[in-house]
C-alpha cells in the first residue's frame, strides 16, 4: 500500500531523514518509534506533503506522491493527526467533524442524512457524543486527541498516520486511547503510529520500525525489535544499559 523508497530530507544541512526505506501493507498497523529528533514526525510530514523529499520516492496505492499538495495526498486516502493536537478551536466538536466531511467530499454542498449518521456514529465511538455542541477549545487534551483521531476517519482513509496519539496522557487515558484506536482503526485500514509509550505500541502494533538520526535501524516483529541491541542503545545510550 505505502512504499517509501530511499527517502531523504535535510533542513539547513542537517539530515532529518537518510535513505529511509519502509513498506506498509494493506491493513497493517506499524509502530514508528525512536528517540526525540530521530525523524519520525519529519517522515509523517514528508508522506503527507507538508515538505517534499529531497531524494527518494514515496508511492501510495501505486501513486507517486512527489509534487502533490497536501490536499491531493489527503484525497488519495492518507489522513493524519499531529503531535500537538490540531482541531478547529472556534468550531464545535460536531462542526469539526462536519468540516472533515466537507473537506473530503468536493461534490457535497450540504450534509446528507448518511453524512450525519456517519458523524454521529464516530462521535459515539469516540465518547464525545455528549460534547458535540461544545466548542473544541473547551475540550480537554484527551478529548481533543480523540476528536483528532475520529476526524481522520471521516473521509474513510486507507492510511492513517497517528503522531503521538497518547502524548501527555495519564496511564488510564493512554489505555483508553489504545482501545479507541483498536476499535476504530481496523476495517482493512493501514496505520502508522508514532508513540513513546512502548507498552501501547507493543499492544497495538504487529510490527515496529525504529528510526535513529533519520535512519531505519530496526524493522520487524515487536518482540524482536524491542530486544534489538541497536534499538536499546538508541533509546538508552551507549554504555548505560547495564
Amino acid at each position: 500500500m505505502l512504499q517509501i523508497d530511499r527517502v531523504s530530507r535535510s533542513f539547513a544541512g542537517v539530515e532529518a531523514l537518510r535513505n529511509v526505506t519502509l513498506e506498509i501493507a494493506e491493513g497493517e498497523v506499524v509502530g514508528l518509534i525512536g528517540p526525540n529528533g530521530s525523524g519520525k514526525t519529519t517522515l509523517f510530514n514528508v508522506i503527507s506533503g507538508l515538505f517534499p523529499a529531497d531524494r527518494g520516492v514515496i508511492r501510495f496505492r501505486g501513486y507517486n506522491l512527489a509534487g502533490l499538495r497536501p490536499d491531493q495526498i489527503a484525497a488519495l486516502g492518507i489522513a493524519r493527526t499531529f503531535q500537538t493536537p490540531r482541531v478547529f478551536h472556534r468550531m464545535t466538536v460536531w462542526e469539526n467533524l462536519a468540516c472533515a466531511v466537507f473537506a473530503g467530499a468536493p461534490r457535497t454542498s450540504t450534509l446528507g442524512v448518511d453524512d450525519r449518521r456517519h458523524v454521529e456514529a464516530l462521535l459515539e465511538k469516540s465518547g464525545l457524543d455528549h460534547r458535540a455542541g461544545e466548542l473544541a477549545e473547551n475540550l480537554t487534551l484527551p478529548e481533543q486527541r480523540r476528536l483528532e483521531l475520529v476526524r481522520t476517519l471521516v473521509a474513510d482513509p486507507g492510511l492513517i498516520l497517528l503522531d503521538e496519539p497518547a502524548g501527555g496522557m495519564t496511564p488510564a487515558e493512554t489505555e483508553a486511547m489504545a482501545r479507541l484506536i483498536e476499535d476504530v482503526v481496523p476495517d482493512g485500514r493501514s496505520c502508522i503510529v508514532i508513540e513513546h509509550k512502548i507498552d501501547m505500541i507493543a499492544s497495538l502494533c504487529q510490527r515496529i520500525c525504529v528510526l535513529d538520526f533519520g535512519q531505519v535501524i530496526a524493522d520487524g516483529n515487536a518482540d524482536t525489535v524491542l530486544k534489538d541491541e541497536a534499538v536499546l542503545e538508541a533509546y538508552l545510550g551507549r554504555g548505560k544499559r547495564a
Binding site: R69, P70, A74, H89, A100, A103, A155
Partner: peptide, 10 residues
C-alpha cells in the same frame, strides 16, 4: 482557523 489543517483534510 488553521490553513494547514484544512489542507491536510483535502
Amino acid at each position: 482557523e488553521d490553513e494547514l489543517l484544512a489542507e491536510m483534510q483535502g
